Simulated assay, not measured.
Amino acid sequence: MIEIIIGVLVLISALIVLIASIGIVRFNNLYARMHVVTKVTSFGLLTMLIAVNLLFSQLWVLIESIVIFHVLIFLSPISAHVIAKVSAWLETNKIEDKSFNDIEKPMSSSTKDNDNIK
């Protein structure tokens, strides 16, 4: 029974990380991407650490998991804040952000002709 619970927690953790990865690709500005990275992956790691603790059931694993989770909880917002400050300093919000889907395609001959008319 405990193996089923552990398996479900690992699957939930993997699904959360997958959703975060899709969110990173889908969002088109830096601040939205930072939000996904800092918030969603923390929850994904928490579910994974719970599954690890259920699997091993030892005190040292619990202590290591608590340390890992607290380091992530404390350092993730700090790193996001530093990235946001540098982004504001470089004024990246004034630059047109391109998402990964905005790959420029070669112009066809009909498009080139229309540009010459203008």
Rank of each mutant, 00 (worst) to 15 (best):
N28H: 14
N29W: 06
L30P: 05
L30F: 11
L30K: 08
L30S: 10
R33F: 05
M34A: 11
V36A: 12
V36P: 03
V37M: 07
T38P: 01
T38K: 14
K39G: 12
V40I: 15
V40Y: 12
T41D: 03
T41C: 03
S42D: 07
F43I: 15
F43G: 15
L45W: 10
T47Q: 10
L49W: 00
L49C: 01
I50A: 12
A51I: 00
A51R: 01
A51L: 02
L54P: 02
L55C: 02
F56V: 05
F56C: 03
S57K: 04
S57Q: 09
Q58W: 01
L59E: 11
W60C: 07
V61P: 00
L62S: 14
I63M: 05
I63N: 03
I63C: 02
E64V: 00
I66Y: 00
I66W: 00
I66N: 02
V67N: 02
I68Y: 03
F69W: 02
H70F: 14
H70C: 09
V71H: 03
L72E: 03
L72Q: 05
I73G: 02
I73F: 10
F74E: 00
F74S: 02
L75I: 08
L75D: 02
L75C: 09
S76R: 11
S76F: 09
S76Q: 13
P77Q: 10
P77D: 08
P77N: 09
I78M: 15
I78F: 13
I78E: 07
I78L: 15
S79A: 15
A80G: 15
A80Q: 13
A80W: 11
A80C: 11
A80H: 11
H81E: 07
H81T: 12
H81Q: 13
V82Y: 07
V82C: 06
V82F: 08
I83M: 12
I83A: 13
I83P: 00
A84F: 04
A84C: 03
K85F: 07
V86G: 05
V86Y: 10
V86E: 07
S87L: 08
A88I: 12
A88Q: 14
W89H: 14
W89M: 12
L90T: 11
E91L: 14
E91G: 09
T92Y: 01
T92E: 02
T92D: 00
T92N: 01
N93V: 05
K94M: 04
K94S: 06
E96V: 13
D97K: 10
D97V: 03
S99D: 09
D102Q: 15
I103N: 12
I103G: 12
E104I: 15
E104R: 15
K105W: 05
K105V: 10
K105A: 09
P106N: 04
P106A: 03
M107V: 08
M107Y: 13
S108E: 04
S108V: 06
S109T: 10
S110M: 10
S110P: 07
K112H: 09
K112A: 04
N114I: 06
D115P: 06
